[in-house]
Every structure is written in structure tokens, then in C-alpha cells.
């Protein structure tokens, strides 16, 4: 009966379409949620920074001959004399047109979008590389450790991970620099590039970049590794106890299929949550790492902007970080729905 087969295909297509539609709806709904959250965060930061002090005073504080009028003019120039709500609405209006204002302090008012654009990539480069390596290393170790629960290997892995979790990144960073840069001289002390192109290894800009990345990425990976290993291990242990794993074994599937298909997909669900949260943490933790490695990233920029009350830069980075975290959350939710069908159709 040829029509029967056609029937299956039609039905499969239909069901597939429904699933796809519900997925689209799901994503749209999540996006709608993000709008109020975004503006909420924005308002808090906008108001809080403006209560922190007067940037004009800070800029002119070292100039004994500044007149009152000159200060007034500066305040007016930056629009700081306007009521707060007006400043905020003006900021939002310009933001919607893609303009985040100009820095008060950096090189004659560089556009904040340019600044963020330049610095963000440096931050991402480090953090994404560290995330990638920590996942690639941690997931197999976590799985192995869970499969051999209580073995010597498992004991070693858990103990090392517990110790690893307790070492803060700045300490790890400083020790790494001390050993590999100071004593061994294998890696640069910090910064993202050699200032002098003649110092590029083999004259290659890319190699120079990788050379500079190595230590910070290694330190970050090491710091990230431990919690992921422990998470994967415990999640895997939980899954391996489930009945469907026993059932999968009972139906004659190979050990590889049982572990890497049936168990892993379930065990990764909490890991996805973790990676989503990681993005928030990564931007929050960036100032520390970037300080230690003298890395030109958003974190360092943020700290400098705050110390100079550089309102547009502070707000601009906040907008950027908030957007990134929200987008990361959205991606997490989508990944979730993709991995776990129970979430898709609610």
C-alpha cells in the first residue's frame, strides 16, 4: 500500500510543524519577557550612577582657576542640569537610534558604541575560549568519574575538583604569571598584544594574539573546570540511576549508546543552565581577570569608567552587559527546550 507510507510522511510533517510553531511562540514569549527586565535594570543603573556623584566636579577638581560659569556650562553641555526623567528618556531615545553617547573621559569623547565594540571582543575572546575548553575537558572527565564512581580515578577527580573550586581566579592568575612569566619566561605578563610588532612570534599577529591569550585562558579554564566536572558527575550519577538507563541496557544497546546518547542528553540539562548563568558570572568576573592580566576588556573599561564617573560609558556597558546576559538566557531557554521536550510543550 503506497498510500500508507505517504500517510506517515504527511503526519510526521504535520507534527513537526506544530512543534516548530510552538517553538516559535515560545521564543517570542521569552523575548517579550525580556523587554521589561531590560528597562528595569537600565533604570536602576541610570539612577544609581547619577546619585554617585558629580562628574563635572571630578573633571574640574584639579583646576584651581575654574570659574563657576565654566562649570555651569560643562554641566549644561553634558545635559546634567536637566531633570532625571528627561535625561533618561533622551538616553533611551538615542539608544533606540543606536547612539549610546560619548565618553566624558576618554580621548576627547569617543563614542561609547565604539569603545564597547573594541573592548567587548577582547572580553569575549577570553571567556568563550575558557568556556569552550572547560566544557570540552570537564564533560568527559565528569562522565568517566560518574561511571567509575568511588574508584581511585573518581576519588582523585572529586578531590582535585573540590580543591579547584576553592581557589579564586585572581590567585590562580597571579600564581600562573609568577611561574610561567616571571620564572620561566614562557608567556607575556599581560596585555592582549605585543606593542612592538617585531616581537611577534615568527612575525605572526595571530600567534602573538594566541600567545597572549594562553595564560589568562588557562587560568580561567582551570577555575571553570572544577565546578563543571562536579556538576556533570553528579548529574550523570543521577541519570545513570534512572530506570530508562536500565531499560536501554536491557534492550541490548551498546554501552556507548547508553552513555553518550541516552544518559548524556539528560545529564546535560543542568549543564545548560550552568552555562547560561556562566555568562552573567563571566561579565561580572571579568574586571578581576582583566585586572590581573592587564587585559583590555569591558571589565577593565567598566572599572575605569566608574572611578571617573564616566556616566555614558557606565550606562553604555550596562546596556551591553544586560543585553548579553538576557540573550544568553534566551539561548539557554531555547537550548533547554531543544534538549528537553517536556519544556517545549507546556
Amino acid at each position: 500500500m503506497p498510500t500508507k507510507r505517504e500517510g506517515f510522511k504527511a503526519i510526521r510533517f504535520k507534527v513537526h510543524n506544530i512543534a516548530k510553531n510552538s517553538m516559535t511562540k515560545y521564543v517570542l514569549r521569552r523575548l517579550l519577557y525580556l523587554i521589561p527586565i531590560f528597562f528595569g535594570i537600565l533604570i536602576i543603573v541610570f539612577v544609581a550612577t547619577r546619585m554617585a556623584g558629580d562628574p563635572v566636579k571630578l573633571m574640574t577638581g584639579l583646576n584651581p582657576r575654574i570659574t563657576f560659569e565654566a562649570r555651569e556650562r560643562l554641566t549644561q553641555y553634558y545635559g546634567l542640569d536637566q531633570p532625571l526623567y528627561y535625561q533618561f528618556l533622551k538616553f533611551v531615545w538615542e539608544m533606540l537610534q543606536g547612539n549610546l553617547g560619548n565618553s566624558y573621559a576618554i580621548r576627547g569623547g569617543t563614542a561609547v558604541t565604539t569603545l564597547v565594540g573594541n573592548y567587548a571582543w577582547e572580553t569575549f575572546k577570553l571567556q568563550l575560549a575558557a568556556l569552550f575548553f572547560s566544557l570540552v575537558i570537564a564533560i568527559p572527565i565528569g562522565i568517566l568519574s560518574a561511571r567509575k564512581q568511588y574508584s581511585k580515578l573518581d576519588m582523585t577527580v572529586t578531590t582535585t575538583s573540590l580543591v579547584g573550586t576553592c581557589i579564586p581566579i585572581f590567585y590562580m592568575g597571579i600564581v600562573a604569571i609568577l611561574i610561567f612569566s616571571y620564572f620561566l619566561g614562557w608567556f607575556p605578563y599581560g596585555a592582549a598584544h605585543s606593542l612592538d610588532p617585531t616581537r611577534y612570534p615568527f612575525g605572526s599577529y595571530l600567534l602573538d594574539e594566541l600567545w597572549h591569550m594562553f595564560l589568562p585562558v588557562a587560568a580561567l579554564t582551570f577555575a571553570e573546570l572544577a565546578p563543571v566536572v562536579l556538576l556533570v558527575r553528579s548529574s550523570m550519577l543521577e541519570v545513570l540511576r534512572q530506570d530508562y538507563i536500565l531499560a536501554a541496557r536491557a534492550s541490548g544497546l551498546s554501552e556507548r549508546t547508553v552513555i553518550y546518547k541516552h544518559a548524556l542528553r539528560n545529564a546535560l540539562i543542568p549543564v545548560v543552565t550552568y552555562v547560561g548563568l556562566y555568562f552573567g558570572g563571566m561579565l561580572a568576573g571579568a574586571p578581576i581577570t582583566e585586572k590581573v592580566f592587564n587585559w583590555p576588556g569591558v571589565g577593565r573599561l567598566y572599572v575605569e569608567a566608574i572611578s571617573k564617573l564616566d556616566f555614558p560609558v557606565i550606562t553604555g556597558i550596562t546596556v551591553f552587559v544586560t543585553l548579553m546576559v538576557l540573550v544568553a538566557n534566551l539561548i539557554t531557554d531555547i537550548a533547554y527546550a531543544y534538549i528537553d521536550p517536556r519544556i517545549r510543550i507546556e
Binding site: 534512572q242 530506570d243 530508562y244 536500565l246 531499560a247 536501554a248 536491557a250 534492550s251 541516552h262 542528553r265 539528560n266 534538549i339 528537553d340 521536550p341 517536556r342
Partner: peptide, 17 residues
């Protein structure tokens, strides 16, 4: 030799059709 497990609710993997 086939096996039907004690818990029908949990003997199917939740993430696969």
C-alpha cells in the same frame, strides 16, 4: 530475552520520542 521494567513511567527516556 526482553525485559519490561518495574516502572512503566520511567522506563522510557524522557528526551526522545
Amino acid at each position: 530475552i526482553a525485559y519490561i521494567s518495574q516502572e512503566p513511567g520511567t522506563s522510557l527516556n524522557p528526551v526522545f520520542s
